[in-house]
Design a protein around this nucleic acid. Structure first.
Lengths: 330, 330
DNA sequence: TTGTATGCGTTATCAG
DNA sequence: CTGATAACGCATACAA
């Protein structure tokens, strides 16, 4: 079932069929002919072959979104936003789970002919993808020299969170972080930590004297790291903890429960991302919300600009602090 | 940069280059020639064009995984399992978020030429995908007449969960479910509910007399539905609730906290899936665990069998009950 | 407004 | 073991 069959059936040339299906019929092909072509195609069940189209036109109308960990709900929302924007532009987004480097094979397999460009979300493009002649790349939530990026205003979010905690009177504010090298959120975590340190200095507290925990991205390590921060004499215990992420914050709350500490009376907790989880927790979690869908859409728009030869524009998307029961008793 | 350039540089024919890169060189091309071709290709930075290969060979070495909601962590683990199995077979998995029907456009765009077959995870293939001539489809966690499937042993899991609750002495066991029509988990939810009812009848309790809640898949509705089940006179209140999913179970626990009910003393809670969340909760959640990665891998294997003309084999993967603090105080 | 001719980069068939 | 040669299905320059 090819455009030739359709042409034969409709009594026109294959060119005409091509014109109709690539949306370039406007003003060139008569309405009657278009109608006849469509009717013939429908009857035969014809649909254009994506591979042939990609080969001939040199563009596949597909972009890849490479993520560090599909399992994180935030990525899902980002994909959804990108997919919506893409479909409005007639493109398709395919998701590639990098899972600590193992997505490179998929990227390599798709980069020539099958996919026009890539969005890297907290994943690091391989050397080959940085070389001249490589397909266009847009960075999401992390920054690489020379590549356009779209990211969230992490520093603004951390800033608002810290202001909130300081206003509540906290002066011993701990920080629970992902292990260095874990790029679930990309380098924007550094910005969060910088805002944390700055606010502490502003109230005359020494950041180096605060409780800082480091953990891998799973429940057991998170809870263990939080317990290590909290299971100390009262005088040394932080009265508040800023966690890099809602899942880490949930670990802090779990550790508090295990140690018999009350949230927020003994320990106030703040996370990032406003996942569904934040509302399922007891107490519900105070968190810095981001618009994940908008992030995905902005990333796609930026890549599309590159693909169309327009100049891409770096973007930073705003954040919003949502105060709930984990910092202020309800 | 095409195979012709490589051939020229290596001083061989284009055919030879093709043979080398499609892995069909074994026993046909001399080792020395293969080496020369690879060297030339490496120097020129040649990589085969996926579109041309797909057009000519009629197979793209890519399969699509259509999911109902990328945001759910269970899907992420399934994708990962499928991707691992696929890469070992030289294939690539692309994820398509159906998001209640909106993935159809992506499926349509990719089905001819770009993707060889589809895995439908708790999503429903459109009419066009069921028509003769449509690409092969494997159903995951739901069943469609005439299509091969891979699913989890939900009935076995529900059975173990109910046996556990009955052994603990519970006789009023409620059920919190997703709205009919919400296919986050496909029809296997029906099997869970059947096992629930059967166990109740076995202990002489009337399933119709139990508390049953229904909710959409978000935190607010879940908590509201759980409150409605629990905010009743003690004599009518269920002493245990079997939730369709860990996220729903988390909503039940949150509702208990809001109502001042203790878990597990006043209400025991059991979920499904063993998400990370289950270990982050307080108390940690008793849940029916499934091997999501194995599910993804089995689904891919089944599709591969179809693609290779072998007879696909329906599969049901085992479950395992994990007892934690939400049913037995620690 | 429509048709003719050509080639995108690869794989497959068949000779040598 | 290797090389000509012919498709695969579509899009585009150009001609009519």
């Amino acid at each position: 079932m090819t455009s030739v069959d359709v042409a034969k059936k409709a009594g026109v040339s294959q060119t005409t069929v091509s014109l109709v299906f690539s949306g370039k019929a406007g003003g060139r092909i008569s309405a009657a002919t278009v109608e006849a072509v469509r009717a013939a195609a429908a009857e035969l069940g014809y649909r254009p072959n994506a591979a042939a189209r990609a080969l001939r036109s040199g563009t596949a109308s597909a972009v890849g979104l490479v993520v560090r960990d599909v399992t994180h709900p935030f990525f899902g929302r980002t994909l959804r936003g990108a997919q919506k924007a893409a479909s409005e532009a007639g493109h398709v987004v395919v998701l590639i789970d990098d899972n600590y480097g193992r997505g490179d094979a998929a990227v390599e397999a798709l980069r020539d002919g099958a996919i026009d460009g890539f969005l890297y979300f907290a994943a690091v493009p391989s050397e080959a993808m940085r070389a001249p002649g490589a397909p266009p790349v847009v960075m999401v939530e992390s920054v690489e020299e020379g590549l356009p990026f779209v990211r969230l205003d992490s520093e603004g979010g951390a800033d608002a969170a810290m202001r909130h905690l300081v206003e509540l009177g906290h002066t011993r504010i701990g920080s629970l972080r992902l292990e260095a090298g874990d790029l679930h959120g990309g380098q924007t975590f550094d910005l969060r930590h910088a805002a944390w340190a700055e606010h502490l200095r502003a109230i005359g507290a020494d950041p180096a004297a605060q409780a800082v925990g480091t953990t891998a991205f799973d429940a057991d390590s998170t809870i263990a790291a939080a317990r290590a921060m909290l299971d100390v004499p009262v005088a040394e215990r932080p009265t508040a903890i800023l966690a890099d992420d809602d899942l880490l914050a949930a670990g802090v709350v779990a550790a508090c429960h295990q140690l018999g500490l009350r949230v927020p009376q003994d320990v106030a907790v703040v996370g990032f991302d406003d996942l569904e989880l934040a509302r399922l927790m007891s107490p519900p979690l105070t968190t810095v919300a981001f618009d994940a869908e908008a992030l995905g859409a902005a990333a796609f728009e930026t890549l599309l600009a590159k693909l169309q030869g327009r100049r891409p524009r770096d973007r930073v998307l705003e954040s919003r602090l949502i105060v709930r029961g984990s910092t202020v008793a309800e």
